[in-house]
Design a protein around this nucleic acid. Structure first.
Length: 783
DNA sequence: GATGCTAGGTTTTTT
DNA sequence: ACCTAGCATC
């Protein structure tokens, strides 16, 4: 179906030349591929599913396949549709293809994330769904504020029915490909109001000429299914389609792909059903399990030779994943026969666990038996949930082990960055009411909530933007004189900045705006977080410099919600298992393998057997990140949300085969298989930390944190005068662990501070009564 | 608009 | 145990 096309730059690559420039027949880029990999690369016509196990060279196959298609003249770069999930994956793919075929890779204009490609298509046909091609893309924050207004307008209790949950629900609906018209009646929110709210939200988005992330795909679906001619045009345009991480596609993405391809087309999906870990955000493993039905006669290529891990690591991982029922089934193998067994350790509590891991990190760094030691960055601690990270951070700080936490709050989601963006958006377009609302009183300029509501109300009533309404209001007498003055300054500032924008580079404009608006001053006044925020803003100004225009910058950030910041120095990586997908490390630590923590209880409660299988895939992903060594650990006692809880080892520990595991425990439990019964009974008899204290008369004193309280808040005072320990709580219902400097409340004597602790005795001094009381109780974990 | 306090929530995360 | 939104009060 494709006639060969001239591809000048690429043809250099297509054939390797011997020393004398003699054509040897086999293209360079195919050299070194194993037979399966080669099949995956060379099966270019018709549908193909590449099942790529962990560490089987997937990215290499993917990029080589693209290079092959281009090099053999089957298509030109702009005739390829290549979609990934993350910007990082898209970027990496582009880089690697460029390395293979040179600058002609720039022609790959349809290579990107699902959302960025969908956005490109939507911009071309926006009018078909009632948008202008200049539509803005809202982030979750904008979304939630908009929904809050709608909920309030509909008189719905936003505490019981939070904007957040509605936003999550709408997102879920969009992921399933449901527009308000197609929403099944069984789906609902706030007792029968779900459908109307969803429709109202979409209508509001349309008036704002905006859409959210889900809409990018959803509008595509509407356009492509209603306009068969357009869909056909795209199907013709995309001669070859390639989808990465197919196991993570949701229904909307799946439908989108179906509309852009035909069932006999050249569609290549790459994925691994065993690594599907995003079911909770709409991914359908079924998409990959069903591939052969969707694309009859599809070729299935399994990549099973692993180039990453030792045989023990693979053995442990394979045994684990074999406990899952819903899978296509692959058996990874390796020629590597070196390496140690996976080590499993049971320890007393979370603290012992972090101590153990820190020790092992230091040991691994030391040269041993002629082998050089590992670097910090060769090691990673992979946790199930982020609350588990803190224990490691504390330990690493204490021992001066350098570490980085990967993940955490993302750059463009930080409040200060969003504030800055809101200023810029409002300068760029006066109609951006959401931006207006966000910063009209940030920093405080005497425009209270009441005035803002009034402005918005009038704006909506008159069908104009908030900024226009403000211009009218300044000249009327509907607002207090003081508010009017504040507003006219506000408007004047923006007029000035807008004029300035014409002949100022956008990053300088940003600096000027932040300075003149008083935003920088506001942050400087905040001693707790101000400096970090100012640093972030500086980074923002820096980042803006690589964009031509303000518009280009804003389009970029709305799709790419993070900055690719430097990989950093030599440091141990701490991250969640989800965050570790696609990465590899010589030495991997997998702490917290306890029932309820991992597998997560909530996952099992909500999704039952399916949830458990996904947790197991997560365990599989974790173990297969390791190249040389994997170390699993679990604790008998753990502090979870401030409560000491006794823990049982994860069922995943039991599923590990002794042949590939070496287990040992400080507390009586030996982990895998052999001697399990006896070991388990010993574990069950192990005494657990006593915890909890309660006594009549004591009430909970609310904890304040440095972030929440400025220096003059009571808790803060105690922090400064006391021993540097933050105020904790003493909750008679829950029991609590008290420490020096902690603040407590007694019905009779009021607030008091814990001054001295000796053994089990507490001395508490009360502020008002001048009372001193000695409390005899069981105290532990005193710092 | 600042302050004091309470209630509610806390798996995983991309775009 | 900790954080944050939001209420009541000054």
């Amino acid at each position: 179906m494709s006639e060969p096309l001239p591809a000048p730059r690429i043809s250099d690559l297509a054939r390797s030349r011997g020393p004398g420039g003699v054509d040897q027949g086999t293209p360079d880029y195919l050299a070194g591929l194993n037979p399966e990999q080669r099949e995956a690369v060379e099966t270019t016509e018709g549908p193909v599913l590449v099942l790529a196990g962990a560490g089987t060279g997937k990215t290499r196959v993917l990029t080589t396949r693209l290079a092959h298609i281009l090099a053999t003249g089957r298509a030109r770069p702009w005739e390829l549709l290549v979609v990934t999930f993350t910007n990082k994956a898209a970027r990496e793919m582009r880089e690697r293809i460029t390395a293979l075929i040179g600058p002609s890779a720039e022609g790959l204009r349809w290579l990107g994330t699902f959302h960025s490609v969908a956005a490109q298509i939507l911009r071309r046909h926006a009018e078909l769904v009632g948008l202008k091609s200049s539509f803005t893309i809202l982030d979750t924050d904008d979304q939630e504020r908009l929904l809050k207004q709608l909920l309030e307008a509909a008189n719905i209790d936003t505490k019981r029915w939070t904007p957040k949950s509605l936003s999550g629900l709408i997102d879920h609906w969009k992921n399933r490909g449901w527009t308000p018209e197609k929403l099944p009646p069984s789906e609902d929110f706030a007792n029968g109001k779900g459908h109307a709210l969803y429709a109202a939200y979409q209508a509001r988005l349309a008036t704002l000429n905006a859409c959210d992330f889900g809409d990018l795909l959803l509008h595509n679906l509407t356009i492509l299914s209603k306009h068969a001619d357009l869909a056909e045009e795209y199907r013709r345009r995309f001669r070859y389609i390639l989808v990465d991480e197919y196991q993570d596609t949701n229904v909307a993405q799946y439908l989108w792909l179906r509309l852009l391809s035909s069932s006999t087309g050249n569609v290549c999906c790459v994925g691994d059903d065993d690594q599907s870990i995003y079911g909770w955000r709409g991914a359908e493993v079924d998409n990959i399990l069903r591939f052969e039905k969707d694309f009859p006669g599809a070729r299935i290529v399994k990549l099973e030779r692993n180039y990453r891990s030792t045989s023990h690591i693979l053995g442990a991982a394979s045994a684990l994943i074999s406990a899952n029922k819903d899978r296509l089934g692959k058996t990874l193998w390796t020629e590597d026969q070196s390496g140690d067994k996976v080590r499993v350790r049971g320890v007393w509590d979370g603290e012992a666990e972090s101590r153990l891991i820190a020790d092992e990190i230091e040991t691994a760094r030391r040269p041993h038996a002629g082998e050089p030691g590992l670097k910090y960055k060769d090691m990673a601690v992979l946790v199930r949930a982020s609350f588990q990270m803190r224990a490691f951070e504390e330990r690493f700080v204490l021992l001066a082990i350098p570490y980085v936490v990967i993940g955490g709050p993302r750059f463009f989601e930080r409040a200060e960055i969003r504030d800055a963006h809101a200023y810029l958006r409002l300068i760029q377009s006066e109609d951006d009411d959401l931006a207006f609302e966000r910063i009209v009183n940030v920093p405080k300029r005497g425009i209270g909530e009441t005035s803002v509501q009034k402005i918005l109300q009038i704006a909506r009533h008159n069908g104009v933007s908030a900024m226009t309404a403000v211009r009218d209001l300044i000249t009327s007498d509907e607002l207090q004189a003081r508010t009017r003055t504040a507003l006219s300054t506000f408007v004047r500032d923006f007029d000035r900045w807008r004029a300035l924008a014409a002949d100022t580079r956008h990053w300088s404009l940003t600096e000027i705006v932040l300075e003149e608006s008083g935003y920088t001053d506001m942050q400087k006044a905040d001693r707790t977080t101000g400096q970090t925020r100012l640093d972030n803003l500086k980074e923002l100004v820096q980042a803006m410099q690589s964009f031509e225009t303000l518009g280009a910058y804003l389009e970029h950030v709305s799709l790419v919600m993070d900055l690719d910041r430097g990989a950093g120095d030599d440091a141990v990586q701490i991250m969640t298992l989800h965050g570790a997908k696609g990465l590899e490390f010589p030495l991997v630590f997998l702490p917290g393998w306890e029932e309820g923590v991992f597998p997560s209880q909530r996952s099992i409660d909500e999704k039952g057997e399916k949830g458990l299988e996904e947790e197991r895939r997560l365990a599989y992903v974790g173990v297969t990140r390791a190249k040389q060594d994997a170390r699993i650990s679990f604790a008998a006692n753990r502090l979870v949300y401030g409560r000491w809880t006794s823990q049982l080892p994860s069922r995943f520990v039991d599923e590990l085969p002794m042949a590939h595991v070496e287990a040992e425990s400080d507390t009586g439990y030996y982990g895998a298989s052999a001697g399990m019964k006896e070991a388990k009974s010993r574990w069950d008899d192990t005494p657990v930390f006593g915890s909890g204290y309660s006594s009549p008369g004591w009430q909970r004193a609310q904890a304040y944190t440095a972030k929440q309280s400025p220096t003059d808040r009571p808790a803060r005072k105690a922090l400064i005068e006391g021993e540097g320990r933050l105020i904790a709580t003493a909750d008679p219902k829950a029991g609590g662990n008290w420490a020096r400097g902690e603040r407590v409340f007694h019905q009779k004597f009021g607030y008091g501070n814990v001054r001295v602790i000796e053994g089990n005795k507490l001395l508490i001094e009360f502020e008002k009564a001048g009372e001193k009381r000695v409390i005899d109780t069981f105290v532990e974990k005193v710092t």
